[in-house]
Each structure stands twice: as C-alpha cells, then as structure tokens.
Design a protein around this nucleic acid. Structure first.
Length: 565
RNA sequence: UGGGGCGUAGCCAAGUGGUAAGGCAUCGGGUUUUGAUCCCGUGUACCGCAGGUUCGAAUCCUGCCGCCCCAGCCA
C-alpha cells in the first residue's frame, strides 16, 4: 500500500490515486474525498467486486475520506434481499467498514421522481408511447443516426399528466416510458433519448408496492452519487460511454454536488469467469454446490475455500488499477494466499492417502510423545506433542518401489526421516493378491529421535506421518480450476470447458488427533498444503477439510521433467 | 462508412522528454528434520508498427495496425 497523504508526488500511484492527489492538493479539508461501492443485489460478489471494494474503501481510508456501501436496487425484477444480506456479510468479511453509510438507491425514489418531474417541466424529458420494438427501430444503429419519436414534441403539460398517471399505476407495463430529450443523432447511443423510467408492477424488496415506476441506472446513479456527496464515482470501463449521460443528468438537475466518474478496467482471472450471469448459471444449473462452492471466484466461495481476507486484499493491491484489458494469472492470487498463510498457519500432520507402516523393532503397545513445532520459523506459536507408536500411516506417494533418481523419500532398503520422529528403514514390502503395496515393514534407529543424540544424522528425505492408533479419520476435498481454458468466455459455450476434475474427494484420510477440534482458521498440512474445515463438517458428517491451496512443489516439476524425457 | 477506450518481458505494472522500477511466473544456486519457507542470482522488453520533431522520445506530432466496449423498458 502506498502512503500518499503527506506525499506531494504522484509517482508510482495508479492513475485514479494520482487524480485524487491532484484534487486534494488545495483545500483538502473542504474537498474531502467521498467514494461509494454500488453493487446491485442480484447475485453474490466475486473477486472482481473485491478489486472495486478495495479501491473504493481503500482510497477513502488512505486519503482521509469516506466510502458508502450503496445497494443499486432499481430493478426489483432481478433483485433479492438475500443478496443484500450476503453482500453485507462479504464486504464486512473482506475487512471494510461503512459505519453509518449503508444506503440504497431506493432510499431516494422520491427524489428521483422529483428530478424526473423537473426535467419534464424543463422540457428535457418526455413520455414515450412507442413499443419497445418501435423504439429500437427509431434508435438507429451504430453507423446510422436515429430519428425522433412522434411523442418527442408532446407538450410539457401532457407529459406531466402522463408521468403522474404512470406513477399512479394507470398504465400497464410497457405502455409508456419516460425518456430524456437529448439527441437522436448522437454518435453515442446512450445519448439517443435514453430511458429514464419504466413501469414495473412488481413488489420491491424494500419499498413494497409503493412504486410501480422504477428509474434506470443511468438516471438513478448520478443522482444517488450527487445526493451522497460522492466526489469520485469509480466504475468499470464499460460505463465510459455512459459518462456524457452521467454528466448530462447532473448538469440538468439541481443537485447538491457534481461527482466525477472515472473508469478503470475490470479484473479478469485466468481459468475462471467473473460475470454474475455466468456464475448464477453455474449455481442454478447445479454445476457447483452453490454461490459459496469453494471453486467459485465469489467472495463467499473464497471464504469457504479458506482464502484469508488479508490475502485477497493483498492480491487486489498487487494487480493495480489501469484501463488496460487484463487477465491475471491464478498464480498471483495463490501467491498472496500462500504468503499470508505461510506466516500465520499452524503446522499439523495429516496423511491424505494412507499407507500402513509397521515398525517391527518397536515394542508392542508402547507409545512415545514426540515434540513438534507449530511453526518452523515462529517459536512463539509454540509446540505440541505427537504420539508415536508401532503402527503408523505415511503418504502413499512417499514410497516408491522403483524410485527414480533424486527420489528422496522411502524406497526398498532406503532410509527416511519421520518428521519430528525417528529415522526408519524400509525392510519389507507387503502386497495384496493384485500386487498392490498394502503395508511396509520398517525398522527404526533408536539413536535418531528428533532432538536426541544422533538426531542430526543426515538422510535425504523427511516425510510426515501419523500414529495409526491415535489418528482421526477425515474427508479431504481437493480443488482445481473450474475451467480447462484460460479464457472460458472466449468460446461460445463456457459450460463446455468446465473442468470435470475440479473436485476430488478423498475419504479415509488420517489426521493428527487435535484436528478434531479445530477453529475455522486455515492450517498447513505439512508438505501437502493449506487446509480449512469445511462448512459441511459436523458431528454427523465427520471431519471435512478443504484444500485452500497446495504448497509450492518443486518435486512435481522434477517429475514432470522426468516423464517428458 | 459511427462513437468510446487500450497497446511497456509469459502475466500484471511503474515510467509524464534525459537514455526502461517492482511483483508474479521461469530458470539456476545456497540454507533447511516441510522437495515448504527464507536468501542470493537469472530477462537481447525492436516500450504495437512506420515516419517526423529534438542534442536526446516509451514519453511530443502524423499516419497505420491490433484488441476491447456500445444499438436493454439490465447494471
């Protein structure tokens, strides 16, 4: 994060912060910055919204300003209180506070109505009776200008009357709309007498049946901004063409402020989609378990997946703010997650694909307690005791009967260090009738107890383990990218490139005992990755973990190189 | 044959006329009882292309090329 207020330079800041610094240069007190994050409650927030939230709330706090959380609820057809609740939870969880600045566009419905009447009175808006199809025809095309509607010259008195009757519910949906009178020949389609109000005989989630006419975004948004004293109205690039209309509304109305709209490019994440429509389709068609499925790029999904809010904020700070089209690689997000969790997550041991190991020279029934650090680089996080016995589980991948060069784990007649335990040697392999390895018979070297006399005896590898007698069984869910293509939006059917292997469920995993009662914080399964207990985890379902993200794995690279040669 | 934007290394991104920051990724190496972390090192970026102005241009001018957005009574 930058530390701008006392700096008189704009070097290194993104272009929006540069504009703000310039704006604040003289009389910063009088011109105090005000921003807003204006979601429409028609779906869950996703990583792209996180970028906007971090920008709007971030910039406000950096420059001593304030930020509104405003629900842009102008279309009751698509909106729902459940989404409002989810959005509030998500923004809060991300770490931002709007104090008393939680508003709704619907708070201003009366004001919008008065503004519309003002425009009509000023002969700058008129009631249209053409059908939607006719309006489309009259609008012209990208290359041909439109033509004026026959209703454009309706008298002010008649417009006033008609609009009042629209509001009174005298007409059916689609019978009339209110349009701004601007310029049907404008090369900017948004200026060809845009719709200001339409009739919708639907109950609104907040205003009930008080209204049957609802304002369009282009009308409601600039007025809402002005009423809240927004100084910088930050939005994404697709609204750039709307700015002349935004300015027109402000200029032609008697409103208390003149906000400035600035556009930046929206976030695209590789191998995922960030469009509420498409995310809703994934949910509604059952391709995922819900808006909070851990594979979803929604804030709720990432929360359930175990991404810490700090990591998401760090990610948003790293990707920057520009007007360029961009596709951010997943690795950047994962790096932010690993970086935060690497410092903060408790280390524990868990075996995902258990292979039984019997220590043949270990006394039957004897249990020793080994001391393990909760974090290798942070002594303040303390230690814990791990039971070690005759029968253990190790990771199936940590044994290879025919090991390639540079395989530093267990192999026939080979030695390996058990993390925080003893060095063991593989003496015998037990197989089932099909030739699958089902158990290893090993011996341990009593001198090599972790912390003991010969504990610094070097062996190539160290692997994790759990005591079979003490470990707890768990389900582990491994996640992969939801799509197989870097840009699922590119083709004509994004559902066709869904990754069929985006979820892998592992049952019968064996985890160290203390994991049975874990908080909701993510932990590191040593050598495997970061994990968090899933919401499905309960006494009846048993223990369930989500893999947040794997650890970086340079062995995987070596393996890949080996198989390619 | 309309309008609005954008083009700096694989992906992001500084740079605002003085001779190309940083991050992620990659590839080497060191430390390590996590093949993790950490630490070092690693890039010929024709600064979209072509001209021009200038002692000097990624930065200014001109022309081209490429990509994105706009014809909802969605936001």
């Amino acid at each position: 994060m930058s530390k701008p207020t006392e700096s008189d330079t704009t070097t290194g800041l993104d272009f929006i912060r540069q504009i703000i610094v310039e704006y604040l240069k003289d009389a910063p007190k009088e011109k105090a910055l005000v921003t807003r994050f204006p979601p429409e409650p028609n779906g869950f927030l996703h990583i792209g919204h996180a970028k906007s939230i971090c920008l709007n709330f971030g910039v406000a706090s950096e420059y001593g300003g304030s930020c509104f959380l405003r629900f842009d609820d102008t279309n009751p057809l698509k909106e729902d209180q459940a989404f409002v609740d989810a959005i509030i939870e998500d923004v809060h969880w991300l770490g931002f506070d709007w104090e008393d600045r939680l508003t709704h566009a619907s708070d201003y419905y009366t004001k919008f109505y008065e503004c519309a009447v003002q425009l009509i009175s000023d002969n700058k808006a008129y009631v249209e009776s053409l059908s939607a199809d006719e309006i489309r025809e009259y609008r012209g095309t990208l290359t041909e200008s439109g033509k004026n509607s026959p209703d454009r010259d309706r008298s002010v008195e008649e417009n006033i009357d008609l609009f009042a009757r629209m509001r009174a519910g005298e007409f059916a949906e689609g019978e009339y709309i209110l349009r701004a009178k601007i310029d049907m020949a404008s090369p900017n389609m948004n200026m060809r007498d845009p719709t200001l109000y339409r009739i919708r005989k639907i109950t609104h989630q907040r205003t009930g049946d008080e209204w049957c006419i609802y304002p369009m975004y282009d009308f409601a948004h600039p007025i809402s901004d002005a009423l809240e004293g927004i100084t910088h109205s930050l939005c994404t690039l697709e609204f750039e063409d709307h700015r002349p209309l935004y300015d027109w509304v402000i200029a032609n109305l008697d409103v208390p402020a003149k906000p400035r709209q600035i556009e930046f490019s929206r976030l695209n994440l590789a191998y995922t989609v960030t469009s509420k429509r498409k995310l809703a389709l994934l949910v509604n068609d059952g391709h995922v378990s819900g808006w909070d499925d851990p594979r979803m790029p929604t804030i709720a999904g990432m929360r359930r997946r175990g991404y810490p809010p700090e990591a998401i904020r760090d990610f948003c700070a790293r990707i920057g703010i520009t007007k360029k089209d961009n596709v951010i690689q997943m690795g950047v997000l994962e790096n932010s997650v690993r970086e935060y969790l690497g410092e903060t997550a408790l280390r524990v041991m868990a075996v995902l694909r258990p292979l039984k190991v019997t220590i043949s020279n270990w006394p039957e029934g004897e249990v020793e307690l080994m001391t393990a650090k909760n974090h290798p680089n942070d002594p303040e996080m303390g230690e814990r005791k791990l039971p070690f016995g005759r029968t253990l589980y190790i990771e199936r991948d940590d044994f290879m009967e025919e090991a390639p060069r540079k395989f530093f784990r267990l192999k026939p007649d080979g030695e390996v260090r058990l993390r925080y335990g003893y060095i063991i040697k593989c003496e015998e392999i037990i197989k089932d009738a099909d030739g699958n390895v089902i158990e290893l018979l090993c011996t341990y070297d009593p001198e090599t107890r972790s912390g003991g006399a010969q504990s610094d005896r070097k062996v190539k590898g160290t692997i994790h383990w759990v005591s079979a007698e003490h470990s707890v069984s768990a389900e582990v869910r491994l996640y992969d990218r939801l799509f197989t293509e870097p840009s699922p939006d590119k083709g004509d059917d994004f559902l066709a490139v869904l990754n069929p292997a985006s979820l892998e469920v592992l049952k019968g995993c064996q985890v160290e005992p203390q994991l049975a009662n874990l908080s909701d914080a993510s932990v590191q399964f040593e050598r495997t990755g970061y994990f968090v207990t899933d919401a499905d985890s309960s006494t009846s379902n048993g223990l369930i973990f989500n893999r947040v993200v794997s650890l970086r794995d340079s062995w995987a690279k070596i393996e890949r190189a080996n198989t390619q040669n």
